[in-house]
Structure formats: C-alpha cells, structure tokens
C-alpha cells in the first residue's frame, strides 16, 4: 500500500477522529449540580485572587484615620467599608480579597507538591511491589500516623513562619493519602492485559509506569487532588490562626479570624467575613471534587 504525503500528515500521530454522535461535551447542570456549583465557586475564587488589586476598594494594609470609632472599636459595615473594619482600622473587604491570594497559593502549590511525591511513591510502590512496596508504604504509614496539623506546626516552627515555609511544610507532609490511592490504582491496573502486553513487547519499566499506567490511573487522583486543595487551605488557615503561619500585617484568612476572635463580642463582622470566605472557598473545592468523582464514575459514563 502506498501512501501520499497528505495521508501521512493526516494520520501522523493517529489522533482520535471526532465521533459524530450527539454526545454533549458538557453534561447538564441537572446531572452534575455539585460539579457546576463547586466549579463556579472555585472560578470565583481564582478571579478574585487574580484581580485583587482591581477589586479591592482600599489598600489592604492601610490603617485608616476614620477606620475606628471614637472609642477605638471597629466600624460596622457601611458604604465606605462594605465589610467593616478590623481592630486596627483596616478595610476587611480588601483584606479578605487579598487573603484569597494566600489561601489559593498555599492550597494549590502545596497540592502540586503532594501530587508529585504521592504519585511517584504510589507508582513505584504499586508497580515494583515486594520490598520497595514494604519500605514506601511503611513510610506512608509513619507520615499518616502523626497528627497532620501538629506535624506541620512543628516543621514551620523549626523553619520559621512564612508563606513559603507553610506551603513547603504542607506540601511535604500531606501526600500520604495520595500515595495510597495511586498505589491501589496501580495494583489493579498492572494486572490488566494491556499492561502485560506492553511487558511482552519489551517496554521499559519507566515507559509502562508513566506512559501506560499513569494516564489510566489519573481519574481518582484528580478527584483527590481537588479535595486536597480545600484541605490544605484549611491547614494554612489553622496555622495562621495559631500564629505560626502567615504573619501580620500580611492578610490571611487564618490570621484575620484570629484577630477577629478578640473583637467578636462587640464587632462580630471581624470574624464573620474571613470565616465566610474560608467556608465558601473550601466548600467550592470539596463540591468540585465530589462532582468530578460523579463525572468520572464509570457508572455515569455513557461512552
């Protein structure tokens, strides 16, 4: 059979041909409400973080002359300060908006670190089995045996509190579950005949792991990673609340809640708004994760 140049170009990578059926790429809101609501909240968070300077009415760190009442208490929400002010006379709305940057950065970047370590450990452990599995899984058991927050606190205390150290501590400690999930996937996938066929063809271990097994294992990992972002945001807030996370005056929802605790009795908005932001953000990621799980569930797939 002879092939023309155009044939070769056309079929070069054997990219999939679009199937002309009525399959809708975006499934209906009614079918996956969690995914859409969660996705909307996450998108909202990303937009707020990206465009913080444009959205924030004031400088988040500026202390306003008119930011406190005559008796030195925070000002209640009004036209100038829609979320009110805090005990230092700073605009809470602007601080909540800027705080989203901290939460999102810590949540996403630490999850990427979690993902990287977890995927590599899970792949190696599940694929090679035997002593590799024993050693790596005991490491996972160890890391999961410690209370996560305490462990993170200790590490940040040693490294010194800063955004990057918080992010690093959460990233380096939070991959245990990820590794277990990946390992479980690999264990079942490596018995599939298409993986055996690859072995029979003489493919290298790295090729089998990264080119064949990993893409097929990625579904549950994506779900877990999405849920993980929310969890890591909570941990960051926890650390900041305890005073060993993001340091004032930089705004973080965690340290704002902490500060709000002191004025809660007579200025409850100082606690409400950062708390609400945290709840909405974490809820968004959790709902999106649950929605993705439903979407990727083979029982829902109409392939």
């Amino acid at each position: 059979m002879s092939l023309s140049e155009s044939d070769i170009k056309q079929y070069q990578p054997f990219t999939p041909v679009p199937v002309n059926s009525k399959k809708r790429p975006f499934r209906s809101l009614r079918e996956f409400p969690m995914l859409y609501v969660g996705g909307f909240l996450v998108l909202l968070l990303i937009v707020v973080a990206l465009f913080a300077p444009l959205l924030a009415p004031h400088n988040p760190d500026a202390v306003f002359q008119n930011g406190l009442n005559a008796n030195g208490t925070p000002i209640a929400p009004n036209g100038e300060f829609p979320f009110g002010t805090d005990s230092n006379g700073r605009d809470i709305l602007s601080r909540v908006i800027y705080g989203s940057r901290v939460s999102l950065t810590v949540g996403v970047v630490s999850t990427v670190i979690n993902l990287f370590i977890g995927v590599v450990v899970g792949l190696l452990s599940g694929y090679f089995g035997k002593w590799v599995d024993t050693v790596l899984m005991r490491a996972v058991d160890t890391i999961l045996a410690f209370p996560f927050l305490l462990f993170a606190m200790a590490l940040v205390a040693v490294l010194g509190p800063s955004l990057w150290n918080v992010l690093f501590a959460i990233g380096i400690l939070g991959w245990g579950t990820m590794a277990r999930v990946v390992r479980g996937q690999v264990l079942s996938l490596k018995e599939f005949d298409y993986v055996q066929a690859e072995r029979a063809l003489g493919a290298s271990h790295a090729r089998i792991m990264f080119r064949i097994i990993l893409p097929n294992a990625i579904g549950p990992v994506i779900v877990l990673a999405t849920l993980n972002v929310g969890m890591n945001m909570l941990t960051e807030a926890g650390l900041s609340f305890l005073g060993i996370g993001i340091q004032p005056p930089q705004a973080s929802w965690g340290n704002m809640i902490q500060q709000g605790m002191n004025t809660y009795a007579f200025a409850p908005w100082t606690l409400w708004f950062p708390g609400l932001a945290l709840v909405v953000a974490v809820l968004g990621f959790n709902m999106m994760g649950d929605g993705l799980r439903d979407l990727l569930d083979p029982h829902n797939a109409t392939r």
Partner: peptide, 12 residues
C-alpha cells in the same frame, strides 16, 4: 476488553 489500552487509539 482488557487487552487494549483504553487511552490509545488503535493506531497508537
């Protein structure tokens, strides 16, 4: 059903 990688086209 188990012997072909679901993520590869037949050509791949």
């Amino acid at each position: 059903y188990a012997s072909l990688n679901p993520r590869f086209t037949i050509g791949q």
